[in-house]
Write a protein that binds this DNA or RNA. Structure first.
Lengths: 149, 149
DNA sequence: CTTATTGCAAACGTTTTGCACGTTT
DNA sequence: AAACGTGCAAAACGTTTGCAATAAG
């Protein structure tokens, strides 16, 4: 588990390498993702930001721009929920897939070697140069199965 | 491969069972999906509908409503492209996953037993009651790999 | 002092909705 | 006749963009 200081340093390096600037807003968003386990929409982050840091002005556009940047740099990653938008998480961890509860929205992460291997094999079989892959299993989590009754 | 008449009959049954009505618009959209292999956005379908059936009035809202209905009834299925919307196809065929080319948008369908089995196993492991699952491999198709150079 | 970044509001593209009118049953 | 479906236009939704002001290097 990387420390926040190391992550921050890494981020600063990336910014410098690309001629970008280190701002209060970018720092706060990075910090937020580091401190909060879980998956958040840009809206979530924007709201919590305004609430927890009333002293810093921040616009929703900046949240979107920063999340896009973090994802491009490989620091964050997102899962898409179709029309309902995306949710972001810190992405320094290993690749993983998601189980999503359709009732309460809970997201469970998992990783399966066999699935990963089959994906590579399939891409190869169709002469596809794989850039990314996602898999989502949607259903009812344990708790919600009980409460459905 | 189901015949169109059988599909139509099935659709009429479903409508009747749910107290819904059989309309010209619903029929045309079903027919369109039956006759056209491939994946289409609601917009695609709307445009082609207006072009090929200038005699029938149809609104984009009806296309959305009908596609949602067809998907709910299991007759059609969709893949999501995030902000860029969804694409629909007739869903009477066997479950399958998708390879999507990020350059030309081509969609290749595949089915892999091992992946299916692992998905079931994983859902079970997390006490998840699986309702659906999707997997997308995105990358460059054979043709586009060549043209990238 | 140059360049990137910001917040704001307006624009965007897709999807949904309210409503009066039309069609199916 | 009752109920559902329709087209239309307006609204909603998440997201992106142009711009003048601001902050970082």
């Amino acid at each position: 588990m990387i420390t926040y200081d190391a992550l921050l340093e890494q981020f600063k390096q990336l910014l410098k390498q690309n001629g970008l600037k280190f701002t209060k807003q970018r720092e706060l968003i990075l910090k937020f993702l580091y401190e909060n386990e879980g998956h958040f929409t840009p809206e979530d982050i924007y709201m919590l930001m305004k609430k927890n840091h009333p002293d810093v002005t921040i616009g929703i556009a900046t949240v979107y721009r920063t999340l896009t940047l973090l994802e491009k740099e490989g620091i964050a990653s997102s899962i898409s929920f179709g029309v309902q938008g995306k949710k972001y998480e810190l992405g320094e961890k290993e690749h993983h897939d998601h189980l999503i509860c359709t009732r309460c929205g809970k997201i469970i992460e998992f990783f399966d070697d066999i699935i990963e291997q089959r994906q590579e094999a399939i891409a190869k079989q169709y002469n596809f140069k794989m850039q990314d892959h996602t898999m989502k299993i949607v259903g009812l989590c344990e708790t919600c199965q009980q409460e459905e009754k």
